[in-house]
Nucleic acid binder design. Structure first.
Length: 111
DNA sequence: CCCCTGACGGGCG
DNA sequence: TCGCCCGCCAGGG
């Protein structure tokens, strides 16, 4: 508990909360926003833990292809259901109009 | 210390 | 867009 080794966990956690409703982002975009020092894989690892322990809209985070890679971890079609509840169309486990719905933190937040 | 795995991404064809 | 290969970093056995 004295050691805060999960610093980047919290970083991903904050960024994920900033994702606007009805928008999606990618693991790589978050990694770049945090400084590239962490790989996109670590972002997925972190967001997984964050979503489990915190209330993070992890369903708005998909891979670069717009594929709902984490849907299996949500269980059933929970992830797809949440996205469709935000007017995001899902087709064949992929986000429809992904490029338009894509929300880049380092571009939109400009930090 | 070594090896494998993982919600990934980029390059190439 | 898809398939294949490689680099990325941390954790578990």
């Amino acid at each position: 508990m004295p050691k805060e080794k999960y610093n980047f966990f919290d970083d991903v956690f904050e960024v994920a909360k900033l994702i606007p409703k009805g928008r999606v982002t990618t693991y790589g975009a978050i990694a770049v926003y945090l400084g590239t020092r962490i790989s996109a894989r670590m972002v997925g690892w972190a967001i997984n833990a964050a979503a489990t322990e915190k209330d993070v809209p992890a369903h708005r985070v998909v891979n670069r292809a717009g594929l709902l890679t984490g849907k299996h971890h949500f269980g059933g079609n929970i992830m797809q259901n949440l996205l469709e509840g935000e007017n995001i169309k899902i087709e064949n486990d992929k986000v429809r109009n992904f490029t338009e719905l894509f929300w880049d933190p380092s571009k939109e937040l400009n930090i």
